[in-house]
């Protein structure tokens, strides 16, 4: 039964959703199942919270190296949760201040790391090792400089090329033509793979949701 029930639920819901996609009359089945998933997913947050408390609590009690971070995490969790529940989340509440003055700058900091990492990855990996890599490198230079005003200015200094539009080269040729073709190839290949894996899940050949196989 431990194997049959999940498989049954998977097959029935998958078939219901496939049928609903093609049949407007049975569209309600799709809505219903999606709503069920949403409800279950909300309850899953409790699972997450329990996991955080157990794992971090355990590390604090054992005083493993770096347990101070676990203390900070648990304090952050309970303080934010408590303030949100008891003080509300509207502007000028303590929760709002935490969101605006702690969470927002911290998130922005993490995102801005991307600029630094792009530079270090480019320095290390972008090498003209082959003919194809050289072509990619030239295209990357044109796009990088073509996407900023300084690049447009530098283009206007070039003797012959300045008569051709850099914007046209970047937007219509590199991005609109070559990039789109590559994106579509990956998208189509991935979509066929998706159909195949979905079919395998539907037939019960692949059951990752049941602990592999």
């Amino acid at each position: 039964m431990k194997r049959e029930i999940p498989l049954f639920v998977c097959v029935v819901s998958a078939l219901a959703m496939i049928i609903a996609y093609y049949s407007p009359k049975l569209d309600w089945m799709d809505d219903m199942l999606q709503k069920w998933f949403l409800i279950i997913a909300v309850f899953a947050f409790i699972l997450g919270a329990i996991s955080i408390i157990l794992v971090n609590g355990n590390r604090i009690s054992k005083q493993v190296p770096g347990w101070g971070y676990n203390v900070v995490l648990l304090i952050g969790l309970f303080v934010t949760l408590g303030l949100g529940i008891f003080g509300g989340i509207d502007p000028k509440t303590p929760f709002f201040y935490i969101f605006t003055y702690i969470f927002t700058p911290l998130s922005a900091t993490m995102f801005s790391l991307l600029a630094f990492f792009i530079a270090s990855a480019a320095f290390r990996a972008f090498k003209a090792k082959t003919w194809e890599a050289t072509l990619l490198l030239i295209a990357a230079f044109i796009v990088m400089l073509g996407r900023v005003p300084l690049g447009e200015l530098m283009w206007s200094w070039l003797p012959v090329l300045k008569h051709y539009s850099l914007n046209n080269l970047v937007e219509n040729w590199i991005m609109g033509c070559f990039n789109t073709a590559g994106q579509r190839a990956i998208l189509l290949g991935a979509s066929v793979g998706l159909i195949s894996i979905s079919l395998k899940i539907l037939l019960g050949i692949e059951r990752p949701y049941m602990g592999g196989e």
Partner: peptide, 21 residues
């Protein structure tokens, strides 16, 4: 697909699109 270039640049091996499936 938009994340593939980053993985290709920073990882030793990358499975592209359908290879993952």
């Amino acid at each position: 697909s938009s994340q593939l270039p980053f993985f290709v640049a920073a990882c030793d091996y990358t499975l592209i699109g359908e290879e993952l499936y």
